[in-house]
């Protein structure tokens, strides 16, 4: 998705723009796996994170190898805001609405 007001000028900028041209994609950093394994509930600094999904998105790639297959929070930066507390709101699957 090309940005409307921002021009990517050099090769690196174009690469970043191209990488983000897909709306939804598997969320993986480097060679991080997408398998299910225990440990996902441990948040940053080994504390329990109130929203394990958020933990998957923002933390696991730096603290462990876990990575859930979840929507792209770069193209849809605010999708998480509706599921702030999984304990109270566990039925909300926080999916990105299909706009196509």
């Amino acid at each position: 998705m090309a940005t409307r007001k921002i021009k990517a000028l050099n090769v690196k900028a174009r690469r970043i723009e191209d990488e983000n041209s897909r709306d939804v994609r598997g969320y993986a950093f480097n060679d991080c796996c997408t398998s299910f394994a225990p440990g996902w509930e441990v948040g940053y600094n080994d504390g329990a994170d109130p929203c394990p999904w958020k933990s998957d998105l923002s933390l696991c790639w730096s603290t462990c190898y876990w990575m859930g297959q979840v929507p792209d929070h770069q193209a849809h930066a605010d999708w998480l805001d509706s599921c702030g507390n999984i304990q109270q709101d566990w039925r909300n699957l926080c999916t990105i609405p299909d706009t196509k």
Binding site: K5, I6, A8, L9, K12, A13, R15, I16
Partner: peptide, 11 residues
Amino acid sequence: TSSFYEVGPEG
């Protein structure tokens, strides 16, 4: 990343 952008006055 050494990426370079023209972001415009609003950006």
